[in-house]
Design a protein around this nucleic acid. Structure first.
Ligand SMILES: [Zn+2]
Ligand SMILES: [Zn+2]
Ligand SMILES: [Zn+2]
Ligand SMILES: [Zn+2]
Lengths: 132, 132
DNA sequence: CTTGACCCTGTAGCGACTACAGGGTGCAGA
DNA sequence: TCTGCACCCTGTAGTCGCTACAGGGTCAAG
């Protein structure tokens, strides 16, 4: 496989070019070698690392957590307790957000269900935002 | 009721002082009169407006939407269709986020359930982040 | 040899805050 | 009266994870 340009890598991973450069600046991706014309030249290892980052982002991990996951992934014979702890923290965070959003959804649905679509003066939504 | 200081208003509404000043800069709250010593002096109307903003934020409305809601709330005899549209948009946004987070939760739970807490080399979580 | 797609760096903007730094005000206790 | 302390002021910069330029350089096809 020949070296990939940043655009090639973007197409293959679905991560925008600007975001790849941002990840490099943030230390998630190693600085790749450059061509004569100063273009980044990626290899398969870079693509695997970026795919790892993308899957982690898709699960909502923050960039700090991803840096930690990448470090852990490099040490094959270490116990995976730290990995699991990061995943559990992330799960807890996701569950907290779901709980918040579920409460918002219930209130919005209830407001909308009670509104008789009349004037603003007796609109249930405005009324509740005012505090009854 | 005497005038309230920004700290009083913060305690009464649960909105931090810095956030109240931020809302003022963003045009969500009118600039209150000042005391001799240049302190903001709030009245009950300010407290009601800030409470409206807080309840809207708690439902996840963005500041642009809240500005629109505040404008609509001021015109009592206008039909409330626009209000309802804003609420429906917000509900749709909340439902989209819940869907995303629910997918993340399922994957995180499944990963955690499959991990036999051994070494990183055969950790299910790291394995899936690598793409099997 | 020109066109156009791509690449480079560096900087600024987004949303909704949050956290200072460096000062001024106001009141209660010694 | 002094002094300490809590509070207030403005202005600016940082957070997170991008995203969008501006102003250039590179490269291959036609
Ligand atoms: Zn109801
Ligand atoms: Zn209504
Ligand atoms: Zn499974
Ligand atoms: Zn594991």
């Amino acid at each position: 496989m020949p070296a990939l340009s940043i655009g090639d890598l973007a197409r293959r991973t679905g991560v925008p070019v600007e975001t790849i450069r941002y990840y490099e600046r943030m230390g998630l991706l190693p600085k790749p070698p450059r061509t004569e014309g100063n273009y980044r030249a990626y290899e398969a290892a870079h693509e695997r690392r970026l795919a790892f980052v993308k899957r982690s982002r898709d699960l909502g991990f923050g960039l700090d957590a991803i840096r930690a996951l990448l470090d852990l992934a490099d040490g094959a014979d270490r116990p995976c307790g730290e990995v699991d702890a990061l995943a559990r923290d992330q799960l807890a965070e996701v569950e907290r957000k779901i709980a918040d959003l579920t409460a918002m959804r219930a209130e919005l649905q209830d407001m909308l269900g009670h509104c008789r679509a009349d004037t603003v003066a007796d609109c249930e939504i405005i009324g509740r935002l005012r505090g009854r």
